[in-house]
Design a protein around this nucleic acid. Structure first.
Lengths: 340, 340
DNA sequence: CACACGAAGGGAAACGGTTCCACATTCGCT
DNA sequence: AGCGAATGTGGAACCGTTTCCCTTCGTGTG
């Protein structure tokens, strides 16, 4: 395989000059640079990133840890990150994190501990103290998108406000018996995305002064279409206290709920209004009222922050984002209306 | 940062011995090994994969190129690959390939050209000659899952047989006016997955002796739920030649078609039978008849092949797979029945 | 009892780049 | 004209491993 020494020899310069001409900064005469580039092309020279990383300490590679790739939100984020990283000339190493367990620990203690990534983007993962510590030890920047736990920068939708807005939309239409299909763990992890949405739901009911005995239940279910389906069957099957409106913690759950209502012969929105969260690809087709967010854009943004952090690298962080939550938008379609 | 020299000094051995004790083979006394390991743990030594790669030429990293992450099939494959790779101690570098264009060329000519991956898994991508050549030049193994183009090993469902079986299922129920919702490009790329399914469809009709004027149309649409929805609206909206059965090239398309039928007041399966392909997570919920395949398992399998190839490495390839197509299974549910 | 052989470990040379430092020009400015 | 800065280039050290080759023992074998 052709090494930089070969290129240098062919171009009649030293390794140092060849290196500068091809990648490094430094002073190189235009003429020389062209000669080196021509030589490189001629022998099909390809730089070894390993050798470069070894000496510079930078790898041009960022690690992404993500709990699912097959949920719409996460898939979309991942595609956004990938595209942004690619155009910045970075590689993306994927760690598909499972629930807590030996595999998960292995990712933090073995894979991420090595110096193979310049930074880590954690999307939608709730890091525990041990995990944060493991990442802290490496001085690599850590930016988080949603989820909870310490990070150098955290981008996040205001999920509590989202939950509140969704619920207020239903209240505003005149509903009072409103159920919430929450994500699993919403009750146990108040700081998680699902926990915050649940909190927002409760906030809205409280400020609206709905007496507790009038409130419908909160049911936790898998944040997926089948999860929403079975959860909604549960919720709607009981004839006594059937809610007139349902706030689903994600659009996938909401679509499952629509399906469940159809199954049970419950008219949407006549007998049941449904609102979701996400702005899922399918939302329009199901005419679903939802609170949109923009995961692809969020991914891109996370990459921007990483790049900024990588430039500063130790300089007094001006906290490039810090503050404004990510944008969301209420989109009213045909699954919500006033109760009969 | 602690280097192996520090470990060696602390353990009172040479770098060479420390290296052997921690990773390499060679002779090391048990006692010495333990001492080195203790020293490593004590100072929190973490080996630099870059340095190791530089000298060994192996990176313990495989590249995966995949056109989507947010379609069920691909997401599932990706998760399968990731899990298998992780447990083999390998990293996964993701290249989310877009349609042909400068970005796509960049992946092949820049990213994959470098020596950062030991092997490449291409899932569902139709490689053109230039791309195959670019990968060929690096001697790294290339295993393909579906799609077309040269590769060292190719795992694939027999998509033609799948198309044929799906169509025969409908024929067997007594249908003759059968439409096919094909994936885009099915007509132009006969060797692609979608092209093969289309061929199987035609094969079945021919062998059944259905006269061409009786056959319903083939319509190409995006291989997604919205694609299936709008495609089916197209197909079913025309009252004159409405088919009594529909073979959708994927479950996502099939579910979109179900939705479209509902929209148009067409009873499924009374007025229209629908069959899909994939065994999608949602298939059961929609009671969809489908031909299942097992993408997660396929991903795992692809990794097995890669590992085998990586071991041989130049030895006379016994073509570890070569042959039997990947398993599929017809699962009959409630969206197909005899025509009225 | 000599000898070969296997086990154990050390020294040093890679691997393929980048970058520090030194040196030689050329240029702009006073 | 003199001098410092800017520009262009080469030599050599260095990044952190692995591995080749050599030395030193101890031991089973002829």
């Amino acid at each position: 395989m052709a090494a930089i020494g070969d290129v240098a020899r062919l171009a009649g310069v030293s390794k140092a000059t060849a290196s500068r001409a091809l990648s490094g900064g430094g002073y190189v005469a235009d003429d020389t640079r062209r000669r080196v580039e021509a030589a490189a092309k001629e022998i099909g020279y390809i730089a070894s990133p390993d050798a470069a990383s070894l000496v510079t300490g930078r790898t041009k590679n960022v690690g992404v840890i993500i709990p699912f790739v097959n949920r719409w939100f996460f898939g979309e984020v991942l595609e956004g990150i990938e595209r942004a990283l690619l155009s910045a000339g970075y590689d993306l190493t994927l760690y598909n994190l499972s629930e807590p367990g030996p595999d998960r620990a292995r990712v933090f203690d073995f894979f991420l501990a090595r110096k193979r990534v310049d930074a880590v983007i954690a999307v939608g993962v709730d890091l525990d103290d041990h995990e944060v510590a493991a990442l802290e030890k490496r001085e690599k920047p850590l930016v988080a998108l949603g989820g909870s736990g310490g990070a150098d920068a955290r981008l996040s939708v205001d999920d509590r406000a989202v939950g509140q807005l969704a619920t207020e939309h239903l209240l505003h239409l005149g509903h009072t018996r409103i159920a919430h299909l929450a994500g699993v763990g919403a009750g146990d992890l108040p700081l998680s995305v699902q926990g915050q949405r649940r909190q927002g739901f409760l906030d809205a009911l409280s400020t609206a002064g709905i007496p507790p005995e009038d409130r419908a239940v909160i049911l936790e279910a898998d944040v997926s279409l089948p999860g929403g389906y079975t959860g909604a069957l549960q919720l709607l099957g009981h004839p006594a206290a059937r809610p007139t409106a349902l706030f689903a913690a994600s659009d996938e759950m909401a679509i499952g709920a629509i399906r469940a209502a159809e199954k049970l012969g419950i008219d949407v929105p006549g007998d049941l209004s449904i609102i979701g969260v996400d702005g899922h690809e399918y939302a329009e087709m199901f005419e679903l009222t939802t609170i949109e967010q923009y995961p692809g854009e969020q991914g891109r943004l996370a990459v921007d922050v990483v790049m900024a952090l990588l430039l500063d690298e130790g300089a007094a962080d001006p906290l490039p984002d810090s503050g404004a939550p990510l944008p969301t938008r209420l989109v009213v379609r045909a699954t919500t209306s006033a109760p009969r």
